[in-house]
């Protein structure tokens, strides 16, 4: 039986962001922008959606007078990602 895929994660850019954050402890906005090759505006919107869902934590600070936005995955985000991957498997290898 097919399980529902989390709509928050089931989008190319949001899934990329979460995949990156699953591999690191913390990453800043410009690194994610470079990796995903997304525009700043689109990236900000998708990060906001992930933040609202409680999947990522966003921290804003200043480094040498320059604004710095760092992101990390939350426990809820990790669990959602694991569930998403497990549900994906049921689509690819249906029993």
């Amino acid at each position: 039986m097919f399980k529902d895929l989390d709509p928050i994660l089931h989008s190319q850019l949001r899934l990329s962001i979460v995949s990156i954050l699953m591999s690191v402890e913390e990453a800043n906005f410009s690194f994610i922008k470079e990796e995903t090759k997304a525009t700043s505006g689109n990236l900000s919107i998708q990060i906001k959606k992930l933040q609202d869902a409680g999947y990522v934590k966003v921290e804003k600070s200043f480094i040498n007078n320059y604004p710095n936005t760092s992101l990390s995955i939350t426990k809820k985000g990790m669990e959602a990602f694991e569930n998403y991957v497990n549900n994906l498997k049921s689509y690819i290898n249906p029993k």
């Binding site: 850019l13 899934l15 990329s16 591999s23 995903t36 090759k37 998708q46």
Partner: peptide, 24 residues
Amino acid sequence: MKNSTLTPEESLLLITKTIEEMKQ
């Protein structure tokens, strides 16, 4: 990168590719 939805296979491929790139 656009914000389109993916097929399950595309999703899994994207996850694997991203995590592998980060490791490398």
